[in-house]
């Protein structure tokens, strides 16, 4: 068997704001783990056999790893910009591959059908050409110049606008998207999807946001994002096969799927196969 190269990565394991001395029991790639606040105030994560696991707190969440992370957690420089509202959306569990959850997040063509009248609406279904690349220096997948017509792009949006997006995959189960920010045209809103792989076919999803929006109440921001994600959940639980096929095999990608194609290629190149299968059967 080949070594699971995803073992050395960082994964979200809880909300920093809900960390307490009592702690929570959860799992990472099949191993039961416990997450709590230590005496020194820092996050403490222990593995199945009681060993201490690496831990850090960043972007509203506690992060940990079963292995030996070679790199610090990826950077989201915008998250530290003053004036942003940081939104802990909370966990949603999904019975699907953690990689399928990320792939869905990178997809815009489903907006009119799954997020009807919010992120998309017929007849505005066309996906314009956009740019996709694997940035070798950062070793990340990027999609840029992604544009889509949206009836209600954000809680703060009034009426339909053509929204521009950039997508970034800095780690196999995490994605960061940058989206047109209606109140501040020069900036991007940051919306992330942090996925905790519990098993190859089960994950806890922790969406998180860093927005320029001084108007909307925090609860409305949380509910907007929960609405969107739970609309995706029933799709994710009904895709066949459960594991993400890294070669299309029986699946048929088209031009609108170029981000997905690049993501799968990047996963395959790194041997990031926890939650994947090589060919669709």
């Amino acid at each position: 068997m080949t070594r699971n190269t995803m073992i050395d990565g960082w994964y979200p394991v809880g909300l920093a704001s809900q960390l307490d001395a009592h702690g929570r029991r959860t799992a990472l790639m099949g191993e039961p783990i416990a997450v709590r606040r230590g005496e020194d105030g820092n996050a403490k994560v222990t593995g199945g056999n009681g060993r201490d696991l690496p831990a850090c707190i960043r972007y509203g969440h506690v992060w940990s790893s079963l292995g030996d992370p070679q790199k610090p957690l990826f950077a989201i420089p915008e998250a530290d910009q003053p004036g942003r509202r940081l939104v802990d959306v909370g966990v949603v569990r999904v019975r699907c591959s953690p990689l399928r959850a990320v792939e869905n997040f990178l997809d815009i063509a489903h907006f009119p059908f799954v997020h009807t009248d919010i992120l998309g609406a017929e007849p505005h279904t066309e996906v314009q050409n956009y740019k996709v690349e694997i940035r070798e220096d950062e070793d990340e997948v990027w999609a840029t110049q992604v544009k889509f017509y949206q009836p209600q792009a954000a809680k703060s949006a009034e009426g339909g606008i053509t929204t521009e997006y950039m997508y970034r995959v800095p780690a196999p189960t995490c994605s960061v998207l940058y989206k047109t920010c209606p109140p501040r045209p020069a900036e991007w809103d940051v919306i992330t999807l942090f996925v905790q792989p519990l098993a190859e076919d089960l994950c806890d999803v922790w969406p998180w946001m860093a927005l320029f929006d001084d108007e909307t109440p925090m609860t409305d921001l949380i509910h907007f994002q929960q609405t969107i994600f739970v609309q995706d959940r029933s799709i994710l639980e009904n895709q066949i096969p459960t594991l993400l096929p890294l070669d299309p095999g029986m699946e048929i990608p088209t031009r609108a799927d170029l981000t997905s194609v690049a993501y799968r290629r990047w996963l395959k190149r790194h041997g990031y196969t926890y939650g994947a299968q090589l060919v669709a059967q």
Partner: peptide, 16 residues
Amino acid sequence: MPGIHRLHELTPAPVL
């Protein structure tokens, strides 16, 4: 509500 999709068949295929 989230989890219950729109019945898209109730609206005819829209044309641009």
